[in-house]
Each structure stands twice: as structure tokens, then as C-alpha cells.
């Protein structure tokens, strides 16, 4: 069978998840001795194609139309590309933009879509593994159709390496401009006074802190360590800390020497943004996914452990 992988780029850069997509696609194509086709739409397609031409890529289809991602253009181009290439599976990254067009492609072609795959296999039919309930449960789904659309979770496959000798094929997509009904007018970076990515020590606080007033105990801990205060999404959504403090997919990726997660459950969106040398988690839920990535943990009430820790550190 043939697998078609649609690469992702943003503001002039191919996104690294595109290379993970190639690895996932290759594995799937290999399961049936099939071909790996890659699609790249808009922007500097020549430069992107050079990077996408990795080992075992058979064909790179390029669509020269516009610069930045536009979901109306992608929906039309990828729908036509699927009709032309006739892949068994069309894959895209499970990113904000991947989810912004692939469901429309699936709807137009009347093929099933499964998102956020963490494993893929093919044995007479496609089997997708994905998480439910914030990662506490996994499920497998069998899809018994001629074609399917799947988005893959970033960070779940290695990046494809090597240099390939793929055929480069310009695909003549017919873009109906009257069906382009959204216009990207610009980008805005969310900055602030603090760059948490630069910090050596981060004390990060999550939903478990319960109220803005309670932030005081984590501020005290951060002060005792001369650390920078960071947060997971719910704290930012509630307006308790500014957006420049957010760790995770939507916010910043951080790589401190020490990361202390306080009352953070550990969604994939959060933990994918942390590469700490030493990772400590304090949470009262023993099954919280944060303990899967932590080096050291305490399963207890943060309102007791955090002040006790601050006390210990201040004393020493």
C-alpha cells in the first residue's frame, strides 16, 4: 500500500515533526512493501523538498501556491493529491495546523479520520493506538476501509534520517480561489518580561494550586531556590500568571537543570515542553501522568509538602 505524508512548515521553516511523520509513514509503508509519498504545499517548496528527501522516500509531490499555511488551500490541494496518489493512509502531524485541514479532507473524501495516534500498524487493515482520559487509558481502533486519514502525535516517532533519491514531482493542484474563505493577516509572538526558557531552575505550578491566593506558597519555594516561577495551562487560562510563564506545546519548551512541578497532572501538551536534568513532581494523585516523566516524586498534599520543603531549604 501507499502512504502519503503531508509535511508541515511555518514562517519559512520546515517543522521537525515532518521528519517524525516520515519515520511513522515509512514504518507503515514497509509493513506492506508499499511506497512512501510525501506532499509539501506552499512556501519555499524547493528547500523543504531537499530536507524531506530522506532515506526511502519514493516521491515528493510539491504544490507551489502561496507562502504560509492556509487551511482552505491545504484542504483543496491535499484532497486532490489523495485522489491522484490513491494512498491507503494519508498522514499529517497532530498539530494545530494539521487538525485545521485534515478533518475537512477526510469529510470531502468520505474517509474516516483518527487523530493523535501514538502507534500505527497495518495487517490487512489499519490499527491505530491512541490515548483517552488524559493518558490514563489507551485504546486501539481498527479501521476497515480502503483509505483513512490519521494525525500522529509529535514526539512519538524518531526523526527520519539519511539522504534519499526521491522523485520530485510538481503537482498541479487546481485551487479555487472563491473557496479560500480565510486570510492570514499576520503573526503575533507572545512575549513578556521573563524568558522561562533561559532559567536554570523552574518551579512550575498547575491546576492543583486551586486559587490565585495559594500561589504564595510556590512563590516562597521559588524564592528559596532563587528559581523562576512557571505554570501549566490552567493557571494561565485563569489569568493567575501571564502567558510568558507557560510551559508546554502552546507556551515554551524549557530545559532547566532542575524542574519542580507542583500540582501539575502532566498532560502530554505540558510534559512535551520539559527537558530537565532533574525533574521533581509533587501531586496528590498517584496515577498522575507527571510521575511517568519525573525523576523524583512525592504523592501527597502540595499544601503541606511545599511549605515544608521551603522551610527545609531556607534552614539549610
Amino acid at each position: 500500500m501507499t502512504v502519503l505524508a503531508i509535511a508541515e512548515h511555518r514562517r519559512g521553516e520546515l517543522r521537525e515533526v515532518s521528519l517524525e511523520l516520515l519515520a511513522a509513514s515509512r514504518k507503515l509503508a514497509d509493513a506492506t512493501d508499499g511506497g512512501l509519498h510525501v506532499g509539501v504545499v506552499s512556501g519555499d517548496i524547493e528547500r523543504y523538498t531537499e530536507r524531506l528527501n530522506r532515506e526511502d522516500v519514493d516521491v515528493v509531490h510539491t504544490v507551489a501556491y502561496g507562502e504560509e499555511f492556509n487551511h482552505d488551500v491545504y484542504t483543496q490541494a491535499v484532497t486532490q493529491l489523495v485522489e491522484a496518489v490513491e494512498p491507503t493512509v494519508v498522514l499529517a502531524p497532530n498539530t494545530v495546523n494539521g487538525l485545521d485541514y485534515l478533518p475537512a479532507v477526510a469529510e470531502r473524501l468520505d474517509i474516516p479520520i483518527v487523530t493523535d495516534a501514538t502507534e500505527l500498524s497495518y495487517d490487512e487493515h489499519l490499527t491505530v493506538t491512541r490515548e483517552l482520559y488524559g493518558g490514563k487509558v489507551e485504546t486501539t481502533l481498527d479501521i476497515d476501509t480502503q483509505q483513512a486519514a490519521v494525525t500522529i502525535r509529535p514526539g512519538s516517532w524518531p526523526r527520519a534520517g539519511g539522504t534519499g533519491d526521491a522523485e520530485i514531482s510538481a503537482f498541479d493542484a487546481r485551487i479555487d480561489e472563491s473557496a479560500v474563505r480565510s486570510t492570514v493577516t499576520g503573526f503575533q509572538e507572545i512575549g513578556g518580561e521573563v524568558d522561562i526558557a533561559e532559567a536554570d531552575v523552574l518551579v512550575a505550578v498547575g491546576r492543583g494550586i486551586e486559587s490565585e491566593d495559594n500561589l504564595e506558597i510556590v512563590r516562597d519555594l521559588a524564592d528559596a531556590l532563587d528559581a523562576t516561577l512557571a505554570a501549566s495551562r490552567p493557571v494561565i487560562d485563569n489569568g493567575w500568571l501571564p502567558a510568558d510563564r507557560q510551559v508546554g506545546q502552546s507556551g515554551k519548551t524549557v530545559s532547566p537543570e532542575l524542574y519542580i512541578a507542583v500540582g501539575i497532572s502532566g498532560t502530554v501538551q505540558h510534559v512535551s515542553g520539559v527537558r530537565a536534568e532533574t525533574f521533581i513532581a509533587i501531586n496528590d494523585d498517584p496515577n498522575a501522568p507527571i510521575f511517568e516523566v519525573a525523576d523524583y516524586g512525592v504523592v501527597d498534599d502540595l499544601f503541606e509538602v511545599v511549605p515544608a520543603l521551603t522551610e527545609q531549604l531556607t534552614r539549610s
Binding site: 493518558g135 487509558v137 485504546t139 481502533l141 510521575f291 511517568e292 519525573a294 523524583y296 516524586g297
Partner: peptide
């Protein structure tokens, strides 16, 4: 829907955290 759920399970823990009690 052509999508069929075939399994539901708790993922095996891959964590190696030292938990203090």
C-alpha cells in the same frame, strides 16, 4: 462508522521516578 474499538487498557508504567513516602 467504519472505526471499531478493539482494545482498552491501562498503559504500562514507564516511569522510573523515585517516590518518597
Amino acid at each position: 462508522s467504519p472505526i471499531e474499538q478493539t482494545d482498552l487498557y491501562e498503559p504500562e508504567s514507564e516511569g522510573e521516578a523515585t517516590i518518597y513516602e
